[in-house]
Design a protein around this nucleic acid. Sequence first.
RNA 1: GGGCGCGUAGCCUAGUCUGGAUAGGGCACCGGGUUCCUAACCCGGCGGUCGAGGGUUCAAAUCCCUCCGCGCCCGCCA
Length: 543
Amino acid sequence: MAFPVHRAAAGVRRDPGSVAQALATAFPPSPGVLPPVANGAYVNFSIEPGELVRSTLDLALGRGREYGHAPSLPTSVCVEHTSANPTGPFHVGRVRNAIIGDTLARILRASGAPVTTQYYVDDMGRQAAIITWIWSKPVSDWPEPIRADAAAPGAPEEKPDRRRGRPYPAASAFLKQHPEAAQEVAEVVRTVESGRPPPEHRRLAEEILGGMLASLARLGISFDEFVWESDLLRDGSVGRALDELRRAPHAVREENGAWAIDAATYGLPKESTHVVFERADRTSLYVARDVAYHLQKFARFGRAVDVLGQDHQLHARTLNALLTEIGAPLRPEYVIYQDITVPDGGRMSTRGGSAVWLDDLLDEAVDRARKEVLARREDLTPAEVEAIARAVASGAIRFHIVRVAPDKPVRFRWEEALSFEGRSGPFVQYAHARASSVLRKGGAETPPYPFDPSQLAGAEELGLVRIVSRFPRTVAYAARSAHVHAVAGYAHELADRFNRFYHAVPVLSSGPERASRIALVAAVRTTLANALGLLAVEPLDTM
RNA sequence: GGGCGCGUAGCCUAGUCUGGAUAGGGCACCGGGUUCCUAACCCGGCGGUCGAGGGUUCAAAUCCCUCCGCGCCCGCCA
């Protein structure tokens, strides 16, 4: 640790260098801490190396899979993420939400919070209604432009999100040109709002959602709970929220009978302070249903975290205003991320045809990973090759997305997303596999790991230990700040430093240091595995 | 026009909250390394007006102001 002394020096009107000298020599000795050293205008303190090694390895090896995790907290957290409309396959533009949300949930759990993840399924809007509208007709009755565009519909073995979502872009475009068809869609929306949708409405949404979830499962992403928007309507939650909103201090009734909140006092942009939440025909708007949803969250959880794209920023602030209006006990915390754009800069969109399907990206990644494995390993069974290829593919994509701060925009490029080298998931997996291999060959796959700190006094060893010792702080910081990318940065740093150690310092062929070096490798392996666990990147033992 | 976010080498990125010692990585490029625990690796080199300008400070990528560029939003859609 370095302490600058400029301020103190200015206070006593002396030059910083001599003040640093004086402070360093005057500092009383302290157990486990080396005497401070003055360096220019800084006084540097360091933990006595043996003490650092002993305490760090004791902790990492003693706690094992729990290393870096904090004791249980009382406050339960609901993490809502992904919540993509079930209208077709999952595309890469959406996956940032899922990866940030899933990683954050894991980090919060590690920091001690009981976490429940929720996926909010919007089955009430136009988008879901379009799917029901088109699939309620036999394909032979589809309007010609839709049939032509959604060529070869209905291959039964095709994933349902792909099959059912195929006509969606063309249908969406068709409806813009054909008001009479749009009327039919509006009628579907009305039936959903009335609580009596066509029976296939929910089934189609579930079918498509199932396909989307299968894609996410390939990335290790799953959800504890699903909240269907139409259920909030049917069970009266939306009605109760509307009642509360109408009674709110700044509720106003429009001339035509609609209701709004005059939210001028909440710091919203000038043009957005008039928030209509109920139409004249008594149907609710999205923001009102979101109020109902969040009231339901607050009844069960002590915190609510919502992962949202930047296009929902204003909605989030509006929602906060309305929740404050009705005296809700909590406000959600938001993690806002910037979009993933296509290579030429535009937004990734299903309708515009610019979307890259997550399944296609994963398939390509698995193909490339398989080639890499086969190129360097001849001793593996096909099943082992496949398992490694899948883990590498998923790890590469998750790491690639999560490594960047959420508020930076990301431009999608195939070659970068599929990189297995440098600052990547497979790089970290590889370091883990190396550590595993050392332990395996050393016959040291299980504890105990006896060590003698004086055998780990080299610069490589100490540097490595120092990074291992930082892991719990990194997890705590990531949980506190929602900077999930900090864990990815940490994992890469640890792997990088371990690779350096690996090249510089022999382990199994060493003499009296052998047992201690094995213990260090075991501690690094545990820490890498735990960091990868937070990122849901599989810590491979061989690759 | 207003609101929010972003701008760090050819490209990507950490650090910005909480000001402090030569701005840390990666890709690409150049040069090395495999009788030794996995070369998806390691070592060295190349490359920086931290968007621009001003201010505060002993000290600014970091704080404040102005401007420029890019993205998103500004609906009785979701």
